[in-house]
Design a protein around this nucleic acid. Sequence first.
DNA 1: CTCATTCCCATTGACGCCCATATGGTCCCA
DNA 2: TGGGACCATATGGGCGTCAATGGGAATGAG
Lengths: 146, 146
Amino acid sequence: MNRFLSHAANRIDAKGRVSVPSAFRSVLSDGGVRELYCFQDFVFPAISVGGPELLDRFEKQMAAEDPFSSEANEMSLLVHGGGVFVKLDPEGRLMVTDFIRDFTGISTDVMFVGRGDYFQLWEPQAFVKAQAVAREGRKSRGLRPD
Amino acid sequence: MNRFLSHAANRIDAKGRVSVPSAFRSVLSDGGVRELYCFQDFVFPAISVGGPELLDRFEKQMAAEDPFSSEANEMSLLVHGGGVFVKLDPEGRLMVTDFIRDFTGISTDVMFVGRGDYFQLWEPQAFVKAQAVAREGRKSRGLRPD
DNA sequence: CTCATTCCCATTGACGCCCATATGGTCCCA
DNA sequence: TGGGACCATATGGGCGTCAATGGGAATGAG
């Protein structure tokens, strides 16, 4: 099952590092991913993380537009200016930089959240709340999984 | 991964110099770029910076049009009149001239913003705001990463 | 001669790579 | 079935290297 599933919180150490859950690392190495593309999510206060093909997808989308349009420029501001490649250390940890902290509100712990073909970094409390909101929304709309 | 990504703010020193982030310098040297072409961006209050091929691209585009058209004239006014070559000092720093300050509002700190095949210099606050606007626009238009 | 720019060197703080420890779970065997 | 060895993961910290920054000296222009 080569998808990012479930969620788990890990603690940030004194040097600002956090272990990526083993299950997520397995998915990455199965996919031959050595370098991770991270970007500030468009919808949630979270960092989305996946392989470089994520960025490729965005760039294809932008290439289809007029490169001088303000639409394409704004998209690039998010995708390029709001994105970064990171790699894990030999133990499978990543540095929690200000790039991540400022956008998510993360301070001492990181919630890793599977999203299928990518995963996200959340401030733990924020994730719990957002999930509760999502659950309520679905319930009031009538419970059907589709 | 030969692209300009992410954003980072560096401080201008007493002599008016600022360090270009190491990651950006790596992209430049990988591309064999020794001289940088800078121009006043068409869309944002920022200076765009890249290799000389950036200027070549603009000139090719102008050459494809009628050289006396108002389009081509305006483009030359921006690309040639609003552009300049600069080079980095041995430590990888660039001088923040009035050319840069006046157009961007930069005073004490410079935000370096990756834009894929080039990067930009922003006044830090202005970048944060522009990115927030871009994100709002995307959200309200309801577009998802795929 | 004076001011601005360029080059060179020093400092400090952050980051990457390495190894060590703890904790919890699983498997094997008596 | 219970105990214990084994293993994988998460976590902590030492240390070397490099990046960002500051300042002095040399160079060149007006």
